[in-house]
Design a protein around this nucleic acid. Structure first.
Length: 863
DNA sequence: CCTCTGGAATGATCT
DNA sequence: AGAGATCATTCCAGA
């Protein structure tokens, strides 16, 4: 198939037959809705919701761009079949089968009751992906990075954002692309980079689940907010390939229990030849090596394609012979793409040829990622004004403020919300730390109601984008006061809430829960490069489109603090919220007060220092003053530093609740010029060290004692002056190996503003690095939310594990996580003055500047 | 009866 | 290869 031929799109399906044999070809198009779907077909529309006009002007476009061709061409004849053996089918779909852009049908699908779920028509002879198959655009929205475990180095070439940022004129090109998408059945990938732009032959998965009837909200089992997931058999795991299709081959001791992984056991090394078995009988997954670990270590671990323009922005990774993509894309696949690089976006359409070339006979389930699309930074200075017909994709960076308008999350959500599975009932709406619910407000505009969009985004250090494994879930009930509508935008479920002038343009978000999609299902999706394992943090994303005087729409976005969604992590991982002081005498002895969740007097606090090679130079448990601790705090006695030093030394400490339950390392500075003030019992006089002047000189046995090096300009602080370090919640975990999080240099530049002037910008003193924002303190956040002057904090490159020296086969998931956490840790020093959304939008930019900062002097490292 | 919660069992995956 | 640890998912029970 011509990769540039837009006349038809490939329908890439997994077909299963109940006898364990590959389905015969001829009737593969006979789509059979699951019985559950049939049963649901008669459900009435949600008139309540439909009666609410959408004030959101661009929803349709969103929907269209992302999922405009929702497979309505499929019929629903036949009966559900059990299926045991997968096969891959590729069919052509005539473009005229697409819903006409802008047609009422599309509008209905988009804006119909609760968004017109499009999932009702999938057939059981197709691979079922739970919920809306469009949650993540399967094909070209690899969403490589929502996973904490699938980092940039894994997926820089596979980012949806790659598509988003390849153009110089961000806004203009986006609009053009959106126009294109609207005008063409195939659309444009740019139309919805966030979800892979269901356009150019990449609605492969969408199509197979979608049916004309899918456009009827009545068919959507999820439309009914009161419907328990248990009542939605079509979403039951038992209808999923993950269990049913493999029962015969994989007897389980617990027949009707949870589904097994469709991929079988994940391997993290290539040792198991069966892991890549071409036989579906050996591996139900077309990509048996779907495990990122497996991918990392086996032959999919390929060097970055030469000429890939998207540099890995993290310097440490560049040294690695890292895979351009660690999941689902074999080297050969990449190779295929390389030659197609300049064929345009269409060249990334799935191609039958690829299947034919799959050496082991396993059909390629996942699309390759265009190598020339890379992680590019968003263009600073771009206007957040968009035409009504071309809203920005969900992963498009937007400011939270523009001109007089500001979208502000006045009450942040709690940092932990246990998401519910489809097999569970709702676990309620997201709550605020204060006990209520998050509150969002639009300042600077109150002329007419505007629609607020809410979706679940990622919480890693990459650009914000819709989360592959979590979706927002509309919560209803007596206690829910906020009316909202569910929609699908791109492949992401979105809640639309009205901000009304009579409500002061604010809304309490009491209608939004979080749904967890099963990892196996999402990972199976074509093009999905994220992994779900340990990827359990999300952020709640809010967007509004405010009518602008020039007729355009002003798009603003703000995001919440990260929210941990797993039961386990939420209950076990210590998450530091603050600690005090942030520095102290090398002699130790001071009390360090640490607060946070999952911290108790039984926790351990370990101070450590690592060398340039990542090896631990020093590690010491702090003595816990258990009598002073509480349920959410711990007080320890700071241990003395192990060496004498003439200049401040930055070390780290972490809180541990067990072997693999450690918080993210936080930095602590030992100051040599400390004198205990005679009049202060608990207080410690400290030299005033400008953070940037901490020279990190190598500890030396010959170094004069602190007393000797006191200079004349020593500044004394009372203990009360010691700043409290308040930590953004997302920065409180580290990989369990205990390797410290390197505190790399990180800088926030206010000049990267996308959205024009920001209010109240004020220089942030260097000491404000310690004045971190608490999630639960919006007031404080308001004060500190604006980035000040470029704030650079020296970090310790030596803390980076020397991953570059690791053999590829030695890379483990934890190594990956360590990289991730390291990155996150590197942000922590500067996040104090950056709102989460700002961080999202700009951190990537900052990463590019990090390498230069890395040359700054640090203790024990190269000068 | 339903929703929301917390807890935990169980199997998969990883170390 | 096997054991133990960790994680994801499902199930249960109570409010």
């Amino acid at each position: 198939m011509s990769t540039t031929n837009c006349a038809e799109e490939l329908d890439f399906r997994l077909i299963f037959e109940d006898d364990g044999r590959p389905a015969a070809g001829p009737d593969l198009d006979a789509r059979t809705p699951p019985s559950s779907t049939q049963a649901l077909a008669g459900q009435p529309l949600s008139h309540e919701l439909q009666s609410h006009p959408s004030y959101f002007p661009t929803t349709d476009s969103y929907q269209h761009v992302g999922c405009h061709s929702e497979g309505h061409h499929y019929s629903t004849k036949g009966n559900p079949r059990a299926f045991d053996c997968p096969s891959i089918q590729i069919t052509s779909i005539a473009p005229n089968n697409h819903v006409e852009p802008g047609s009422s049908q599309v509008v209905s699908a988009v804006g119909g009751a609760e968004g017109g779920y499009l999932e009702a028509s999938w057939s059981r002879d197709q691979l079922y992906l739970p919920l809306d198959p469009c949650y993540r655009d399967p094909a070209l929205c690899p969403s490589p990075c929502s996973s904490l475990s699938s980092r940039s180095w894994m997926s820089d070439l596979s980012s949806c954002e790659s598509f988003s940022h390849v153009y110089d004129d961000m806004e203009g090109e986006l609009r053009d692309a959106a126009r294109l998408a609207l005008g063409s059945p195939l659309g444009s990938p740019l139309g919805s980079p966030g979800c892979g732009g269901g356009a150019f032959g990449v609605e492969l998965w969408q199509q197979k689940y979608q049916h004309p009837s899918a456009f009827s909200p009545a068919l959507s089992p999820h439309q009914s907010p009161r419907q328990s997931p248990r009542q939605s058999p079509c979403h039951s795991p038992r209808t999923s390939v993950t269990e049913e299709s493999w029962l015969n081959r994989r007897p389980t001791s617990r027949p009707s229990s949870r589904p097994t992984s469709p991929c079988g056991k994940r391997r993290h090394s290539s040792a198991d030849p069966h892991a890549r078995s071409p036989s579906p009988h050996h591996s139900p997954s077309p990509t048996p090596g779907a495990s990122p670990r497996g991918s990392v270590t086996d032959d999919t671990w390929v060097g970055s394609p030469a000429g890939a323009p998207g540099p890995l922005l993290m310097s440490g990774y560049q040294e690695l012979d890292v895979p351009s993509k660690t999941r689902r894309t074999s080297g050969s696949q990449l190779g295929l793409l390389t030659g197609q690089g300049d064929a345009g976006l269409e060249s990334f359409q799935d191609s039958p040829r690829e299947d034919g070339q799959e050496k082991d006979g396993v059909a390629v389930l996942f699309l390759q990622v265009p190598s020339h699309f890379s992680w590019n930074k968003p263009k600073p200075g771009a206007s957040p004004l968009f035409r009504m017909s071309s809203p920005p994709p969900l992963d498009w960076p937007l400011p939270n403020q523009y001109d007089q308008c500001e979208l502000k999350l006045e009450v942040q959500p709690r940092s932990y919300h246990r998401a519910h599975y489809e097999t569970e009932g709702s676990r309620g709406s997201i709550k605020a730390a204060t006990g209520g619910h998050p509150v969002i407000k639009l300042n600077g505009y109150s002329e007419q109601p505007v629609s607020l969009l809410l979706f679940i985004g990622t919480a890693d250090d990459r650009y914000l984008r819709p989360h592959s494994f979590y979706q927002v879930h509309r919560v209803t009930g007596k206690t829910v006061t906020t009316i909202c509508q569910e929609k699908i935008m791109g492949c992401t479920k979105v809640l639309e809430i009205l901000l009304l002038p009579e409500n002061n343009m604010s809304a309490s978000i009491d209608c939004a829960g979080i749904l967890k999609l099963r990892n196996a299902d999402i990972e199976l999706k074509k093009g999905e490069t994220d992994i779900g394992r340990k990827n359990t943090r999300v952020r709640v994303v809010f967007r509004v489109a405010v009518p602008h005087p020039d007729g355009q729409m002003l798009w603003l976005q703000t995001v919440s603090v990260p929210v941990e969604c797993s039961q386990r992590s939420g209950q076990e991982l210590p998450q530091l919220e603050s600690f005090n002081p942030t520095s102290g005498s090398v002699d130790g002895g001071q009390e360090l007060f640490i607060t946070g969740s999952n911290i108790s007097a039984q926790s351990r606090v370990v101070f450590m220092e690592k060398g340039p090679d990542g090896r631990s130079l020093w590690e010491m448990d702090a003595r816990v003053l258990s009598e002073k601790g509480s349920e959410s705090s711990i007080v320890v006695e700071i241990p003395p530093y192990n060496k004498k030093t003439t200049c401040p030394v930055q070390v780290q400490f972490y809180v541990s609740n067990g072997k693999r339950r450690r918080s993210l390392a936080q930095s602590f500075t030992y100051l040599p010029g400390i004198r205990r003030h005679p009049s202060l019992a608990a207080g410690v006089k400290q030299e005033h060290w400008e953070p940037d002047l901490i020279s990190f000189c190598p500890p030396s046995a010959e170094a004069p004692s602190p007393d000797q090096v006191l200079s004349s300009d020593v500044v004394y602080y009372d203990s009360c002056d010691l700043p409290t370090f308040t930590i953004p919640p997302q920065m409180t975990t580290i990989p369990p190996q205990g390797s410290s999080v390197p505190l790399q240099s990180f800088a926030i530049s206010p000049n990267t503003s996308l959205g024009g002037p920001r209010r109240g910008q004020s220089p942030v003193s260097q000491s404000s690095r310690s004045a971190f924002v608490t999630a639960a303190d919006p007031q404080k956040e308001a004060v500190l939310s604006n980035p000040g002057p470029r704030l650079t904090i020296k970090k310790e490159p030596e803390d980076q594990p020397n991953l570059g020296s690791l053999g590829l086969h030695e890379i483990t998931l934890d190594d990956v996580n360590e990289i991730i956490d390291r990155d996150i840790g590197s942000l922590s020093g500067s996040a104090a003055t950056v709102q989460p959304d700002q961080l999202d939008q700009y951190h990537r930019y900052d990463w590019e500047h990090k390498s230069s900062d890395a040359a700054l002097p640090f203790c024990g490292g190269p000068q």
